[in-house]
Every structure is written in C-alpha cells, then in structure tokens.
Simulated scan of single mutants.
Amino acid sequence: MTTQTLTFAAARSRAHGPTTALWHAVEVHRAPADLDGACELTVCGTLARVTTEAHWPVSGVDVCSACTAAS
C-alpha cells in the first residue's frame, strides 16, 4: 500500500479590477523543488503564481477563504 502525502503550496493571484490580490492554496503532486513559479490551478479554481518564499497556510487578511476551508 502506498501512502500519499498531500502538500499545499502558497500562490498569489493578480488583482483584477476592484478585487485585491489573494493568497491561494495549490495542491502539489510533485516535489516542491520542481515548482518554477509558473501559474497553477488553485484549490478554489483560480490561476495563481506559485511562490516558494511563502508557505501554506499564509496568515493575513488577504487569504482566499475557499482555499483555507478546503485545505
């Protein structure tokens, strides 16, 4: 039996119109070292750029509530 560890990475979305940029969770199925800062599909369905400087969960008021609840 194989055990799979679920890992989340932090990703920052872009601000669009009246919305602000938010931190999102990205479910990672590969080594964190393989993340290259490209845009990834987040837990809530948004495209956001993964960052290796921040770790999920990110604290603050600019965090996606859907990603927080799902992770």
Rank of each mutant, 00 (worst) to 15 (best):
P57Q: 09
T51Q: 08
G60F: 00
A21R: 10
G37D: 06
S71D: 02
C44G: 00
A38M: 01
T46E: 10
T68N: 07
A69M: 09
D36L: 07
A54R: 13
H16A: 15
D36W: 01
R14W: 12
P32Q: 10
A66M: 10
S59Q: 14
D62G: 03
L22V: 03
R49P: 03
H16P: 04
M1N: 05
M1E: 12
A38S: 15
A21V: 05
E53Q: 03
L41P: 08
A10C: 02
A10I: 07
F8M: 05
R12C: 04
W23N: 00
C39G: 11
A33Y: 07
A10S: 06
V58S: 01
A15G: 11
T2V: 14
W23T: 03
A9L: 08
H29N: 13
R30A: 14
E40S: 04
S59C: 09
A54D: 03
A54C: 00
V50K: 07
V63L: 03
E27M: 10
C64G: 07
S13Q: 05
S13I: 10
E40L: 01
D62K: 08
V61C: 04
R30K: 15
V58N: 05
S65Y: 08
A31L: 14
R30S: 14
G45V: 06
A15W: 10
T2D: 13
D34S: 15
D34H: 13
C67K: 03
P57G: 09
G45A: 00
L41K: 12
A15P: 12
A11S: 02
P18N: 10
S59T: 14
G17V: 04
V61D: 14
A54V: 01
W56Q: 07
P18I: 11
V28G: 07
T52M: 04
A9S: 06
A21K: 01
V28M: 10
A10E: 04
W23C: 03
A11C: 10
G60P: 08
R49A: 09
T2W: 01
L47G: 00
R49M: 02
S71V: 03
L41S: 10
P18D: 13
A38R: 14
H55G: 01
D36H: 11
V28Y: 05
R14F: 13
T51C: 02
A11M: 07
S13F: 05
A69F: 08
S71M: 09
V28T: 10
M1V: 12
T20L: 12
R30P: 09
T68Q: 09
S59A: 12
V58K: 05
D34I: 02
L35V: 04
L22W: 09
C39R: 15
R12Q: 13
A25D: 08
S59L: 11
G45L: 02
A33R: 14
P57A: 06
F8I: 03
R30C: 14
A21Q: 01
A11F: 02
L6I: 15
F8S: 03
L41H: 10
G60W: 02
F8L: 14
T3S: 13
P32M: 08
T68E: 07
G60C: 01
G17L: 11
T52G: 05
G37A: 01
A54H: 11
E53V: 04
C64Q: 00
V43T: 04
A31M: 12
E40Q: 11
E40T: 03
V50W: 04
T42M: 07
T7S: 14
A25Y: 00
V61N: 13
A48I: 06
T51D: 02
W23H: 05
V58T: 04
D62P: 05
